[in-house]
Write a protein that binds this DNA or RNA. Structure first.
Lengths: 335, 335
DNA sequence: TAAATAATAGAGAACGTTCTCAGTTAATGG
DNA sequence: CCATTAACTGAGAACGTTCTCTATTATTTA
């Protein structure tokens, strides 16, 4: 039914080995008499519409032509942008991208499965804070290259460090320096994490340590934001500004505040983080900070491919991404 | 290196065939003496941490354990929700979901590739209006089940019909009946398509044929919406309402209008379509209509699996999805 | 032109499974 | 307890490639 390399070989009157060699190696640098044969093979393949069976190919080459992506917050648009770019790059190299979500750091089982069943050749980790050592061991044992991105630098493999602390710090700095705000709180992840760390650093540096405060949420979604806003309002006098873990949380908080008749930025200033596309379209538009997802994708993919192709075999690299501040309406600018 | 079924068989002191049979078939309904062997095999597999190599499996079974998803507007959150649900369902059945984007109906090449290289066992088509007959033929020739969803019913395979025309019509009806609006225009796809068809039907039925008008955009994104708003404003007096192709376009239009000092819904009413999560969080929140993405995913996946497993072999089915109206602020309600 | 060398071709194993089929072993019935 | 039937086992082919290794052929050199 399907056309195999055997049929190509038969039609071209060469052996299967020769067909395979030519189909993969091309026709350049061949001995004069060999060129004719090669062209015959290529013509035969073309004529029959031959396409190699990747499964068979994968079996003998011990590869799957899949790259895995595991990350948090798959519903976040900032992930979608990154993933679709990565998918495109992978596709150009003949790989498919298998993505998998993670909720609250658990349920990495699917990764285990995919790796154990030899379904991925390389792995991209997105903001996975605590990868179980057992998984890391499996990856090393199976020789599966890994790259990651996130707030914390990684010593075990190549990574892109997104300086969330610095992004957050700059946002806080903007609120203090440009807008003269003092009572600024942070909403999102727990105290020890990079983003709230950046917040606290700037507050302390500006002599505002007394105002440090945070509202914790274990989710960073629109809905979580709205709920958080309701909680904040119920808890008494509002701060002057809320610096949020990410854009989705910020947008949710803005909606929650508005639902109770509180104006942004007149009554409370709100900032996000990620610079998702939607941040330009909210009302008020959202002041935030982020990195270019295409650049991030390129860096990640380049490093991963180098590892997979063995072009680079040195020590784990850590490249730092360039964050950028996007000043819009929600901080009180542009009004 | 990797543990194979041979090693399991050796440890359990059975043949490879037996190991395979037991590992796949389980231990139930076996003859009394066979149960002991079976348990020995399972124990051995467990002990060695055996996981079948899916590539090898796929080769002999002529399957890839991948399901393809091809659709338009992969950046649209409404797709993300659907795709992630489908991915979960696929995962539970041991399949990975390979997704691919389509821009303006062209570049279906990647699908061809994946199909030709035997990398997908089934295909889900999302709002692909014009699938080349050559691709359809390939699918049939290779016996790859297909399901699709979209505005137009499909006769060649199972599909879920999303009644975009009816959704749009109901929105227009709401604007006319509840808000007494007359000068309502449509923004989005060309005249002949379902959504604008629904718009025109209701306008005509309500005797407002004279006000029918549409603003065309070949993209349905946030940015396209903003640009469209600018074009509309530049073109003279504004309509009373803009019924948009989808939520993203609507949100973009609202932002564009606001940028020029025009208020929604006071000056112009705006409605969307899809009911993406964000529609609840915009300011004003967006009146729209949509179907439940989880329900849609379930319907699609169920039909596809039935085809793939051969449980259903009858005529192509067309199931209709239940749309729902979401009345919010952008139409002037809830203010 | 013959010998040495370089380039290419082809046979066949290997990849790790599943699955058919012939042969063996256990259960059943009289 | 033996014949019959049913249940199970294992050898080996098959899936469609790649790739090693030996044999062959072309090219170059003396």
């Amino acid at each position: 039914m399907d056309v195999t390399i055997h049929q190509v070989a038969e039609l071209a009157e060469v052996s299967v080995s020769t067909a395979s060699r030519i189909l993969n190696g091309g026709t350049k640098g061949l001995r004069r008499d060999a060129v004719l044969r090669a062209e015959r093979v290529i013509r035969a393949a073309d004529q029959l519409g031959y396409r190699p069976n990747q499964t068979a190919r994968g079996l003998v080459m011990k590869r799957s032509f899949n790259i895995g992506f595991i990350g948090t917050e798959l519903g976040n648009p900032v992930r979608t942008e990154l993933i679709e770019t990565l998918r495109g790059m992978a596709g150009e190299k003949g790989f498919s991208l298998l993505t998998g979500g993670i909720k609250y750091g658990n349920s990495l089982e699917s990764v285990f499965e995919n790796i154990a069943e030899r379904r991925i050749d390389g792995l991209i980790l997105g903001n996975v804070s605590a990868l179980p050592q057992s998984l890391a061991d499996t990856l090393f044992k199976r020789n599966i290259p890994v790259v990651s991105f996130g707030g914390a630098p990684e010593k075990r493999w190549d990574c892109v460090v997104l300086d969330y602390a610095e992004m957050t710090r700059k946002l806080v700095e903007h609120l203090i320096v440009t807008h003269g705000l003092k009572k600024i709180v942070h909403a999102g992840e727990p105290q020890s994490y990079p983003r709230s760390e950046g917040y606290r650093r700037q507050m302390t540096n500006s002599g505002l340590g007394q105002y440090i405060g945070s509202w914790f949420s274990h989710e960073f979604s629109l809905e979580a934001g709205r709920k958080l806003a309701v909680r904040m309002i119920g808890a008494g006098p509002l701060p002057e500004a809320v610096v949020c873990h990410n854009d989705l949380l910020a947008i949710g908080i803005m909606a929650g505040l508005r639902g109770k008749g509180i104006r942004v930025p007149e009554d409370v200033v709100v900032t996000g983080l990620d610079n998702i596309e939607m941040a330009q379209y909210t009302n008020p538009s959202l002041t935030t900070s982020g990195v270019n997802p295409t650049v991030l994708a390129q860096k990640l993919f380049e490093m991963l491919i180098e590892r997979m192709e063995g072009t680079y075999t040195g020590k784990p690299r850590a490249v730092h991404s360039r964050e950028k501040l996007f000043i819009r309406e929600s901080c009180g600018c542009l009004l």
